[in-house]
């Protein structure tokens, strides 16, 4: 159940998983707001007091943003899960700026799920790796389904033993 470092990596791996198992894989996004636990609050208070003692002058860094120790923790977590193979890919963020981009990613993965061909203009907006560019090129030649099949077999080493 790995957490992937970047959303691009998460997208790449998820699209491979979707190609291999398009009808059983589900994508869950979880937006959660939690009040910090008592230990977290005290930790934050200690951190804040230490910082104010030092004054932040030694490093010359900008003055620390004062954080309310009671401030709730909000996270946005994406999870691709295939119950048949047990593969689970996760990505977590706490930045509001990423939400729009991640929903865009979900929409592209949704096209996989709906068995629609990938959009060619996805290449421009994606901060994605080169690995995904090949399927787009191939699906342009109206070989969408067979191309996906080849990749599902070849690209996914973990998924052996399917045939």
């Amino acid at each position: 159940m790995p957490y992937l470092e970047t959303s691009a990596e998460w997208y790449e791996q998820s699209s491979l998983l979707l190609k291999a198992r398009p009808s059983t894989t589900r994508i869950t996004s979880k937006y959660t707001v939690l009040k910090p636990s008592a230990s977290k609050v005290s930790k934050r208070e200690r951190f804040a007091s230490k910082r104010s003692e030092r004054g932040g002058s030694a490093t010359g860094s900008p003055p620390p943003t004062v954080q309310n120790p009671e401030e709730p923790v909000a996270t946005f977590k994406l999870k691709t899960y295939d119950p048949v193979s047990g593969t689970c890919l996760q990505y977590e963020t706490n930045k509001a700026a990423e939400v729009g981009r991640l929903i865009g990613t979900l929409s592209r993965l949704g096209r996989h799920q709906a068995a629609l061909p990938e959009l060619p203009e996805d290449l421009t907006q994606a901060a994605s790796a080169e690995g995904i560019s090949t399927p787009v090129v191939e699906s342009d030649q109206k070989l969408g389904a067979p191309a996906a099949e080849q990749k599902a077999a070849g690209g996914k080493k973990k998924k052996k033993g399917k045939k």
Binding site: A96, V99, G100, S107, A114
Partner: peptide, 29 residues
């Protein structure tokens, strides 16, 4: 249920709804 031909339009609204709803996340500093 989203029909395949409505997928694009749905996700545009979906993104809007999520961005508006997930207000607890950290704003860009």
């Amino acid at each position: 249920v989203v029909q395949p031909d409505q997928l694009e339009a749905f996700y545009v609204r979906y993104a809007e709804a999520c961005r508006a709803g997930m207000s607890g996340l950290k704003k860009r500093d």
